[in-house]
Simulated scan of single mutants.
Amino acid sequence: MRRSINWPKPSWGWASLPALLIVWCVAATRVPSYVLPQPWDVIAEAVHWIRSGDLGQQVGASLLRELGGFAAAAVAGLAIGTAAALSRGFREFVGPLNSLFMAIPPIAWAPLSMIFFGLGYLSIAVVIFIAAVFPMAITIQEGVLAIHDGEVRAARTLGANRVQLLRHVYLPASLPFITAALRIGFAQAWRALVAAEMIGASQGIGWMVAMGGQTGNSSEVLLGVALIGITAWLMESLVFRRIERSYESWRGQQ
């Protein structure tokens, strides 16, 4: 009896971007170029921004705001989510606040933040913080609550103290949820950043998109949109996936 060869199934993920470009090129031939430019027009716009040195400045300004607000939200989200999971009283206290702030679009806080802190770094960082902290706190809370009581009791039976429980039980078991919380928080923060920059900033990727729309430069708008997507994709590929690979080996050791 002949053995059949199980050939690997082809992955079609590589075809998505070329398909998008083909649809873009075809659609651009049906409308005026000032409405929808061709991809090479956007590339020419990018070359112009790179040669002038402004592109790196805009991306750097956005990343600086993002990292500041997101880092503060990550620390606060981890603390709030862990405390809510370990304390029923605190969980009942913050539950309505989580529901309230999750229901309000983060960009709605931008005008108030700019009134309090003025136009600049701090006002946008506050909007980023509000956008990211509550989804992260809820995700981490659910991750800690998902830990089986049997694992905790077994560790206590073996003489583990609170620090050892946190290091060898709670932290390894909740790492997937922490990574998921970071992903969700970064995505929410990145969207809020771009929206806030479109309203009240003098530089950044969101400001690029807003200025392109006001001047009727659709190539600049699409360049900003492409930068938003590329930056998020790079964070996913270079940061979050590496974190996953590193903690998987660490969890095995624990």
Rank of each mutant, 00 (worst) to 15 (best):
G150S: 10
Q141E: 03
I128A: 12
T139E: 12
I140L: 00
A154G: 07
A125Y: 08
Q141P: 08
R153E: 00
M136G: 14
H148M: 08
I130M: 14
V144R: 03
E151N: 11
A132R: 15
H148S: 14
A137I: 05
F134L: 12
F134G: 14
V144H: 02
L145K: 06
R153Y: 04
E142F: 14
T139F: 04
Q141V: 03
G150T: 06
A146T: 02
A154C: 00
V152K: 00
M136P: 09
V133A: 14
R153P: 12
V152Y: 07
I138H: 11
A132C: 15
V126S: 07
A125E: 05
H148C: 04
I128Y: 04
G150L: 09
P135Y: 05
P135E: 04
L145D: 01
P135D: 07
A146V: 05
V127L: 01
I138L: 15
T139D: 00
G150P: 12
A137S: 14
F134M: 11
D149T: 03
I130N: 06
I138P: 11
M136Q: 14
T157D: 06
V126N: 01
F134Y: 14
G143S: 12
F134A: 10
T139W: 03
A125H: 03
V144A: 11
G150V: 06
A137R: 09
I130H: 12
A137W: 00
I124V: 12
T139S: 05
F129I: 06
I128R: 02
I124W: 12
V133N: 15
A132M: 15
G143R: 01
E151F: 15
I147T: 10
I128G: 02
A155G: 05
T157E: 12
M136S: 13
A132P: 15
V126P: 06
P135G: 08
Q141R: 06
R156M: 10
G150R: 07
E151D: 14
D149G: 08
I124G: 12
I138R: 08
I140E: 03
V127Q: 06
F134V: 15
I124L: 06
T157Q: 10
I124K: 02
R156D: 08
D149E: 01
A131I: 00
G143I: 00
P135T: 10
G143L: 07
A155I: 03
F129A: 00
F129H: 05
V152D: 04
A154P: 12
G150F: 12
V144W: 02
A154M: 00
Q141L: 01
I130R: 02
I138K: 13
E142L: 13
A125W: 01
V144T: 06
L145E: 05
E151T: 14
V152C: 04
A154Y: 02
A125L: 08
I128E: 07
I124N: 13
V144I: 13
V144F: 10
A125N: 02
H148Q: 10
F129V: 10
F129T: 12
A146W: 04
A155C: 06
I124A: 01
P135M: 05
L145S: 07
V126I: 09
I130L: 15
F134W: 15
A125Q: 01
